[in-house]
Design a protein around this nucleic acid. Structure first.
Lengths: 204, 204
DNA sequence: CTTGCATTTGACCAAGTGGTCAAAACAACG
DNA sequence: CGTTGTTTTGACCACTTGGTCAAATGCAAG
């Protein structure tokens, strides 16, 4: 019975979500105002509220859309593939996400920094389940001597940290590198670092 | 000619800074209210403003105090020491800072996420100078074959990312590890990862 | 062109915001 | 005790904030 959205609806909802992503990812939920989002989207505030019931609703829509894809790279980690190639591939997919969706990364970072009030449950259920499952897989690889003996949870954390850093701390990275593109160097470095970390120890 | 602070002044200023650190580090500058800080500090709002002229003033005092020590671990990186031990020592000092001062780490993260409006200049001057200097040192070690050939800037970024992650994403780390202390495992993992990353390649 | 619906807006509101101020309460000291 | 300086507070203010609403506008189909 719900009618298909008109072209105007599609355009405006998209504009609001993009504007909301801009502002929420920079200032966090509480630091963001509806006026800011409305200005960025090029709409009046009442008009904005014609498309989304509340500030919460915009934020929730953004988080929901984010979570749909945020964990995809990890889900794709395949137990049947070559262990080292699989893990390095995962890291590369995550780095690409930081490069291509930095606002989404910062939205997530803000949510976590503020104590994850809107996604706490998901962290403890979906996320934990997924991570534990993949950690078990990595542990098996490790036990089988196919990769170095490392703690799989901390390996996953390290991949998150190393890749998201380039999106979340973009301002700092740019300040230090003064202009030069970070991602090329990051990929080379990450490949080296992970390759070394995962390699099975040479016999002594 | 400025009078020494009384005991009450010391206590209240300290309480305000601690409360401000709590709130700013969680919600960022714009997401923080004076009422929140006053409540957390156990003072009335006018009383709070008797000690600090404005919300900005509290935030500025916190950032200033933070910056005094934030870069110390990197400054201590010593060109005369053993290269690998120096770098691993740096990483360990940074990890200890995440463990012992997580609120400060999150305050910094929030500031960067919001585009570093209050410390932009420092990033481009003091920080960049320091990092470039230490990067040059690491490059020299690399050129001399004392550590693996890696990009020193990205090495430094990786140490920042790996260590600060445990403070900034604490909620997520705890959700995944469900209770178990993260830092012991983190140190073991970090030592392995950096050791492998820096080791000179075995002759083939 | 008109009818009916989708869209947009100006005016408005109650609550929250950063901040002020004069007066009150307190502390210290002769 | 009284005096003097420090600390604390209640009342208040202008402005911002999230959100409402009725009226106005746009627009597509008959």
């Amino acid at each position: 019975m719900t009618k298909p959205p008109t072209r105007i609806q599609q355009r405006n909802r998209a504009a609001i979500l993009s504007a909301g992503l801009d502002v929420f990812s920079q200032y966090g939920f509480r630091g963001t105002t509806l006026d800011q989002i409305a200005d960025t989207a090029g709409l009046s505030k009442p008009n904005l509220l014609y498309y989304f019931a509340s500030k919460e609703a915009i934020h929730a829509a953004l988080l929901e859309r984010l979570l749909e894809t945020w964990l995809d790279p990890l889900k794709a980690l395949d137990g049947a593939g070559d262990p080292i190639a699989e893990i390095m591939g995962y890291a590369q997919r995550k780095l690409a996400m930081s490069r291509d969706y930095p606002r989404e990364s910062r939205l997530f970072a803000n949510e976590i920094l503020q104590g994850a009030p809107h996604i706490r449950d998901i962290l403890h259920t979906d996320l934990k389940t997924l991570v534990d499952e993949k950690a078990q897989l990595i542990q098996a690889w490790s036990d089988a001597g196919k990769i170095a003996a490392i703690d799989p949870h901390h390996l996953i954390f390290s991949i998150w940290a190393l890749t998201q850093h380039y999106a979340d701390f973009d301002v700092q990275v740019r300040a230090v590198l003064s202009g030069e593109d970070a991602y090329a160097g990051a990929e080379t470095f990450l490949t080296h670092m992970l390759g070394r970390t995962l390699a099975i120890a040479p016999a002594t």
